[in-house]
Amino acid sequence: MAAEHTGYRSPLPRALARRVGQRVPAALLRYRVMAWIVGVLLIALVLVAVPVKHLGGVDEPVAVIGTLHGWLYAIFFVTACDLALRARWTARGTVLILLAGTVPVLSFVAERIATRKTRAGERV
């Protein structure tokens, strides 16, 4: 009789964990959380705050969301660089991922690509 499979699958292949160290999964999680936060704030800034400023003459949403996005992008930058070093991303891939965080919606696409490649043990 075959061994029973629990259905649990590690989010990161063991080969990658051995190659780049055990801290990649935690760095990947930090990066993904920050990518989503920064992406959502950038969409809110572009689609809500800027139109409110220009159509309604209300400056506060741009000031608040823009400042928050700027500070959190700095944290995103650090988490992405940390992951890039731990997972041994290429310089080109790292720069592209960092730039994607400044383009609405593209940050979500870049996060999915970076997550898929990192989990597969590929260099971004």
Rank of each mutant, 00 (worst) to 15 (best):
P104N: 06
L47Y: 12
F76D: 00
D82K: 05
P61E: 02
A110Q: 07
S107P: 02
L83P: 05
L55R: 09
I97Q: 13
T118Y: 13
E60D: 10
I37S: 04
A44T: 11
A74R: 05
L106Y: 14
L68K: 00
T115A: 14
V40F: 12
T118E: 09
I97C: 14
V109R: 11
L106H: 06
V52G: 01
W71K: 08
T79I: 00
A120M: 07
A110V: 11
D82V: 11
A87D: 07
A100N: 07
A91P: 02
G101N: 09
L45T: 07
A114T: 14
V62H: 01
R116S: 12
K117W: 14
W89P: 06
V40R: 03
R116W: 08
L98H: 10
L47H: 05
A80I: 02
T102P: 03
V95Y: 03
L98T: 09
I37V: 15
S107Q: 09
V105A: 12
L41E: 13
L99Q: 09
A49S: 13
T90I: 05
V46M: 15
S107M: 02
T94P: 01
V48E: 01
A110W: 06
T94I: 03
V103I: 15
A80M: 11
A49I: 02
L99R: 10
I113K: 13
A110F: 10
T115V: 14
G39E: 11
I97F: 10
I43Q: 06
A80G: 03
A84T: 01
I65T: 04
I97E: 09
A87Y: 05
H69G: 02
V58Q: 14
V38Y: 03
A114E: 07
E60F: 10
L98W: 09
L83Y: 10
A80W: 00
A120V: 04
R92S: 10
W71C: 10
L47W: 12
L72P: 01
L99M: 14
P104K: 01
F77L: 15
R116M: 05
I43Y: 05
A63T: 14
I75Y: 04
Y73M: 03
W71I: 14
G57E: 04
L72T: 09
A80F: 00
R116I: 08
G39L: 07
T79H: 08
W89I: 07
A49E: 04
V105R: 08
L41S: 14
L68Y: 00
W71M: 13
